[in-house]
Simulated scan of single mutants.
Amino acid sequence: MTLVRRVARPLLAAIFVAGGIDQFKHPAAKAKTAGPLLAKVGPRAGLPDDPELLIRANGMAMVGAGALLATGHLPRVASSVLAVTLVPTTVAAHAFWKEQDPEVRERQKVQFLKNLGLLGGLLLAAVDTEGKPGLAYRAHLASDSAHRAVRTTRREARHAARAAARETKLKAVQAQHALS
């Protein structure tokens, strides 16, 4: 792991670990904020009708994924989980477009944009293969390799069939000369 990754991952993860612990310990305030969004999305997503439980679960996901990202274990999965937890948090908690007070609107807008920046960092971490080819590239290579193997096998089979045909003709000619 490069020095940049070793430093950047814990820095990115820190806010999620701290926020997740806070959500787990104090879900009531967050549940009130998330209530309208959970009321809309929850039934369709098959989520339980307990906002505090969902906030605590979100908090634990943030702590777990944040710890994994910070330590460099499963960083692509961890950052993907954090990105998924960040989207509803951002929409529910920082809906600046709904605010009437200009100062509150501006504060919420800054928090919204900060979360978008965090989301961008998480998306970069989610696709970071540390210089190694990703799964899609490796699958493409495997597919190319399989296609090459099929073409090579066909070509070798054609050569073997032609060689067998030549050998058969040669044996037939030799057999005819032996009879004459």
Rank of each mutant, 00 (worst) to 15 (best):
M60C: 02
P75C: 03
D101N: 12
A93M: 14
L86Y: 07
S80F: 07
L74I: 12
S80L: 05
A95T: 09
H94A: 10
G72E: 06
W97C: 10
E52I: 05
A65P: 06
R105I: 06
L54V: 01
N58K: 03
S80P: 08
G72P: 01
A92P: 10
Q100D: 09
M62H: 07
A61G: 09
G64T: 02
M62N: 05
V104S: 11
T89G: 14
L53R: 02
A78G: 12
D50W: 07
A65L: 04
V91A: 09
A83V: 06
L54K: 06
T89F: 04
T71V: 12
L74Y: 10
L69C: 05
L69N: 03
A61H: 05
T89P: 10
L86C: 11
I55F: 01
T90S: 13
P75D: 10
F96L: 15
M62L: 01
H94R: 05
V84S: 13
V81L: 04
G72Y: 04
G59D: 05
V77A: 15
A83W: 06
A70N: 14
T85I: 04
P88K: 02
D101M: 13
A83L: 08
N58M: 05
L68G: 14
A92D: 02
F96S: 12
M60N: 03
A78C: 14
N58T: 12
E52N: 11
M62T: 00
S79K: 00
M62D: 04
W97L: 13
